[in-house]
Each structure stands twice: as structure tokens, then as C-alpha cells.
């Protein structure tokens, strides 16, 4: 029995080794070597000078994640309470933009946000503006929220549909009004979805480079752009790029583990309350 499952899992194991383990090891290798292939920690030390970029990336990623959560949570809850048929339609509508090319969607935002873009022209009709929207950090966060919101909604929605309605009835029966039902039952029961959603929005937001390049102009360089520059740009330095990637990976892991710790505590607290 055990042998059989081993044989069956062999292709996946091979796949994972080739496409996940080996690349990670390669990144680590490049990060700790210089151009001539000698061991060095200089690249890692070098990363320090970009700390402002790291802080900006994490800050923007966090902002996008929080905004996505604020928008996504109520929306997922409302959808989960709809009739089964309406639910399917709503979920499809949420997925629909994802069928379109990522670049195209972000381009569309450019034309909307430009100084003489659609929004400013529309506002101009009422004598308001023009506002400078493109090439701001706000535009980058907006792009992140727009592109990654479905990744927040879907896990929340799927966990919320699993909350048994009789559990909520039981809460009401035991004296909870809608507020306490939410804080003591719905919220703690949907925490796994919140955690998945946050991970799925935060991680790609922090490491994005297209969104910041297209909507952020030159002033909103993110880690993704920085790495991009080291491989494809004129700063060509794959070793430094690898080092930045490695640091980013560690930072994200740290962020997530801190957050998960916090989430667990929250759940524990919910239990004690």
C-alpha cells in the first residue's frame, strides 16, 4: 500500500525537485557567489542599501491586502448568503476579469488614470480636477487591489459557505444579536479563509513589478522592479538579483509566520472570550 502511493507520487516528487527545489537552491547559490563563482556574502550585504524599496513594497503590499480584506470580506459574506444560482453568477463575475490578460487590464487602468484620461476628463466636465492619479503610490495600490481582489474573495467565500446556518441560529438562540453572532461565531469560523486570502494577496502584491511600473511611474520602484533591473535591465547583476530575491523570500516567510502566529492567538482569544 505504502509502496504504491510512493510510486504514484513519484512524478510529482520529480516535478517538485526539478521546478521548485532546484530553482530555490540555484537562487541561493547565485546569491552567495560573485560573478566569477566564488563564495561571498557581499551581495546579501548589498541588499541593505535598498531597504527603502523593501519597506515601500511591504507597506504597499500590506495596504493592498488590508483594502482587499475590507472590500472582500463583506462581499464574500453577502455572496455566501445568496441563493445558490445567484452565488454562481456572482462568483463568475468576480472571476471574469481574470480571464483577460493581466497586462491589458493594467493598461486599461493607465488610460483611466492618466492626467487627460477618462476619469479626469469626466471630472473636468463638472469643473473638478484634473487630479494627478497616475504615477502615484495610490495608483499602484489600486492596481494591486484590482488585480488580486479575487484571490481574497474566493477563499473567504468558500469558507463562508461551509459555515452551517444552524450554527448561526444556535448563536441567536443563545442570545447573540447580529453583532455578537458575527464577532463570536462567523469571524472565528472564517479565520482560515482570512488567512489564506491575506497570503494570496500579500505575496504577489509585495513581489509585483508590472503594476508598479505601469501605474507607479519612476517614483514607486518596488522590489519586483529592482530584481527585474538586475536581470533584464541595464544594472545587470544576477547575483545581486538573486540575493534580493532570497531576502524577499525570507521577509515574506517572516511576515506570514508572524501573521499566522497573530491569527492563531486571535483564535485562541476567541476561544477564551
Amino acid at each position: 500500500m505504502k509502496n504504491k502511493s510512493k510510486i504514484l507520487s513519484a512524478p510529482y516528487t520529480v516535478w517538485m525537485v526539478i521546478f521548485i527545489l532546484v530553482p530555490v537552491l540555484l537562487v541561493a547559490y547565485f546569491a552567495f557567489t560573485n560573478k566569477s563563482g566564488e563564495f561571498t556574502v557581499e551581495n546579501i550585504l548589498h541588499v541593505g542599501q535598498y531597504s527603502n524599496v523593501f519597506i515601500r513594497s511591504i507597506w504597499m503590499g500590506a495596504a493592498a491586502t488590508i483594502i482587499s480584506l475590507i472590500i472582500g470580506y463583506p462581499l464574500a459574506y453577502i455572496i455566501s448568503k445568496m441563493k445558490a444560482k445567484t452565488q454562481n453568477v456572482m462568483i463568475m463575475l468576480i472571476m471574469l476579469p481574470m480571464w483577460m490578460n493581466f497586462l491589458l487590464r493594467t493598461y486599461a487602468w493607465m488610460t483611466l488614470l492618466e492626467n487627460n484620461g477618462l476619469i479626469n476628463r469626466l471630472l473636468g466636465l463638472f469643473g473638478i480636477g484634473p487630479f494627478e492619479m497616475i504615477n502615484t503610490s495610490g495608483a499602484v495600490v489600486l492596481g494591486m487591489v484590482y488585480n488580486y481582489l479575487p484571490f481574497m474573495i474566493l477563499p473567504l467565500y468558500s469558507i463562508m459557505t461551509k459555515i452551517d446556518n444552524t450554527t448561526l441560529e444556535a448563536a441567536r438562540d443563545l442570545g447573540s444579536n447580529s453583532v455578537t453572532t458575527f464577532t463570536r461565531v462567523i469571524l472565528p469560523l472564517s479565520m482560515p479563509g482570512v488567512r489564506t486570502g491575506i497570503t494570496m494577496v500579500f505575496v504577489p502584491s509585495v513581489s509585483t513589478f508590472i503594476i508598479s511600473r505601469m501605474l507607479g511611474g519612476g517614483g514607486n520602484l518596488l522590489i519586483g522592479d529592482l530584481i527585474d533591473l538586475q536581470f533584464l535591465g541595464n544594472a545587470y547583476n544576477p547575483n545581486l538579483g538573486a540575493a534580493i530575491s532570497l531576502v524577499l523570500m525570507v521577509l515574506i516567510l517572516l511576515c506570514m509566520s508572524v501573521f499566522n502566529q497573530f491569527g492563531d492567538e486571535e483564535e485562541m482569544e476567541g476561544m477564551l472570550l
Binding site: T166, T167, E169, G175, P188, L189, G270
Partner: peptide, 28 residues
């Protein structure tokens, strides 16, 4: 509304709170 009625229900499928232990369920 149900939460203001002085009666309690035992549901067919018990409807216990899965995120709480026995003590906290009873204490709810």
C-alpha cells in the same frame, strides 16, 4: 427576535460551535 426570547433550542444536528471547546460551548 430569537435572541431576546427566554427559551432555548436543541437543534437536530446539535449545531455546536466547532471553533470552541466543550466548556466554551456551554459558556457561550
Amino acid at each position: 427576535p430569537p435572541h431576546k426570547r427566554e427559551l432555548n433550542t436543541i437543534f437536530q444536528k446539535y449545531a455546536l460551535f466547532p471553533h470552541l471547546n466543550v466548556f466554551n460551548n456551554v459558556a457561550f
